[in-house]
């Protein structure tokens, strides 16, 4: 069975139609890339999957393991295994990154009927993962995303993903604002998380990221829906030719 299935999804914001019939099926273990011009609804799609308020679903459905997500609250979707790596990770002043990570881990344990994670166990776990991703210990003590550089923010997102073990992760423009070194670190982190039962949707504007995170399937998104699907070579083609062929579809 598909891990994620999006069927004919239509959605609007304040009366304006943004998604106009999105169909997407992602099998377990697969990495799909969603590419396309800016302002065509890619981020809207990721927000809607994660359950953000403010969108009206006018038609269609989103299924995780065959179960509709549409009636579920954002936190319940997260607990069911949906993870969104934010394009612009949000600052939470005064809350240490480690405190935030612990709260997120404990939310999962609570949902599973387990007690809170032991403080020592938590520290060991976080430090090990942080080291793998090149996240310095002092970053864990700093408030969530406050004063983080672009690279630090994205690494922190991948660290969260690594600790929360999602079934389905959406990387929304994870490459934006990253230099080549940071990009490699982040890509390595994501690649390490690839597994037969976890799937990814990598949203990006450029082919660059896909040299490091090699997708199984590439989609071109324009005008509020997927207009073309192919293999990794499609990303190369887009890099060479740009999106000019597709901007017409957006109009």
């Amino acid at each position: 069975m598909a891990l994620i299935e999006i069927r004919n999804l239509h959605a609007s914001v304040e009366g304006k139609d943004i998604l106009k019939g999105v169909d997407l099926v992602i099998e377990p273990g697969k990495v799909h890339a969603l590419m396309g011009p800016n302002g065509t609804g890619k981020s809207t799609l990721s927000n809607i999957i994660a359950g953000r308020d403010g969108y009206t679903i006018t038609e269609g459905d989103i299924l995780l393991n065959g179960q509709s997500l549409l009636e579920m609250e954002p936190q319940d979707r997260a607990l069911a295994g949906i993870f969104l790596s934010f394009q612009y990770p949000v600052e939470i002043p005064g809350v240490a990154t480690s405190t935030f990570l612990k709260a997120a881990i404990n939310a999962r344990r609570k949902a599973a009927g387990d007690g809170e994670i032991d403080a020592m166990e938590f520290l060991k776990l976080v430090k090990a993962k942080a080291k793998e991703l090149g996240v310095r210990d002092d970053m864990l003590k700093r408030p969530v995303n406050v004063g983080f550089s672009g690279g630090e923010k994205k690494r922190a997102e991948v660290l969260q993903m690594a600790l929360l073990n999602p079934r389905f992760a959406i990387l929304d423009e994870t490459d934006s604002g990253l230099d080549i070194d940071a990009l490699k670190v982040v890509a390595d982190g994501v690649n390490a998380l690839r597994s037969p039962d976890r799937s990814f949707l990598v949203i990006t504007h450029y082919q660059r990221l896909l040299s490091y995170i090699v997708p199984d399937v590439v989609h071109v998104f324009a005008g509020g829906r997927i207009v073309r699907t192919g293999g990794p070579e499609l990303a190369q083609e887009l890099e060479a030719k740009g999106y000019a062929d597709y901007t017409g579809a957006a109009a």
Binding site: P74, A78, L79, L84, F86, V90, A104, A107, R108, L164
Partner: peptide
């Protein structure tokens, strides 16, 4: 809203 959604997306 952003802060709240960010926390909810992490399962809180």
């Amino acid at each position: 809203e952003d802060q709240l959604f960010y926390c909810l997306q992490r399962g809180l």
